[in-house]
Simulated scan of single mutants.
Amino acid sequence: MAELESVRKSVEKTCEPHEFTVDSMPTRFIEPVVMQGLKVHRVQRGLILCSFTVPPRLLNTGNTLHGGATATLVDILGSAVIYTMGSLATGVSVEISVSYLDAAHLGFVGVAPMVATGPVALEVVAFPVTTTFSKDYNEKAGRKPSQRRHFPTERNTEEIEIESKALRVGRAIAVASVELRSIKTGKIIAQGRHTKYLTLQSKM
């Protein structure tokens, strides 16, 4: 069936222009890809407070922060806050849950379709601001005009606040909460909970 084939193609990312770049990345590259640019403002017992400007590399098809990136932030920061409680290890994940309550936007909804002849400003459809568009990036990726990526300028990106709290750190189980909020509006973007099994220290 045609619709099943389209599903397969959307999931199986082969023969893509970026395939070589992805395969050449070093091992354990997921954390720096997601965490690059995160700023830590406070670390105390049971609490980590950060801010993060949503970068274009973490967008989904709707031009908002990808849900997988949000889950990764919950994973990493939920583990990190366990260390603030004096734990020597953060153990292994038992469960991660995320409630997505709002979108972390980049300051626009869409752009008017056009073919770029260089780095140009594009008019935003929904808001009276502009975004920029890299001709070099799209040409290297072999994108057709209808497939080209539109990147927001830094001044239009949304900054979010991330608060990670240790809810419980026992001998065997630790539970942390991670909340993402829009700094501009105060709206909660996502709430996550990370449960970890702490490997018991040997008494020998």
Rank of each mutant, 00 (worst) to 15 (best):
E3W: 10
E5M: 12
E12Q: 14
P17Y: 06
V22Q: 11
D23R: 15
M25N: 07
R28F: 15
E31I: 10
P32R: 04
V34P: 05
M35Q: 06
M35G: 04
G37Y: 01
G37A: 01
H41Q: 04
V43T: 02
Q44E: 15
R45Q: 15
G46K: 07
I48A: 01
I48E: 01
L49M: 03
C50K: 03
F52Q: 05
F52T: 00
P55S: 10
P56V: 04
R57Q: 14
T64A: 12
G67L: 10
G67N: 06
G68Y: 01
A71Y: 08
D75C: 09
I76A: 12
L77A: 07
S79C: 02
M85D: 11
M85A: 14
L88G: 05
I96Q: 09
V109Q: 11
G110P: 03
P113D: 06
A116L: 14
T117V: 01
G118C: 10
P119D: 15
A121T: 08
E123T: 11
V124C: 15
V124P: 04
A126M: 06
F127S: 09
F127D: 08
T130I: 04
T132G: 11
F133R: 12
K135M: 12
Y137T: 09
E139K: 09
E139D: 15
K140E: 12
A141D: 11
S146R: 08
S146D: 15
R148V: 14
R149E: 12
F151E: 03
F151K: 06
P152R: 03
T153M: 14
E154K: 14
E154M: 11
E154S: 14
E159P: 02
E163K: 15
K165W: 12
K165C: 11
K165A: 06
A166F: 06
L167V: 13
V169Q: 02
G170T: 04
I173T: 08
I173A: 05
V175A: 02
S177W: 02
L180Q: 03
S182V: 00
S182D: 01
T185L: 01
K187I: 00
I188D: 05
A190G: 06
G192E: 04
T195S: 08
T195R: 08
K196P: 06
K196V: 14
L198E: 04
L198H: 05
L200W: 00
Q201N: 10
Q201F: 03
S202Y: 03
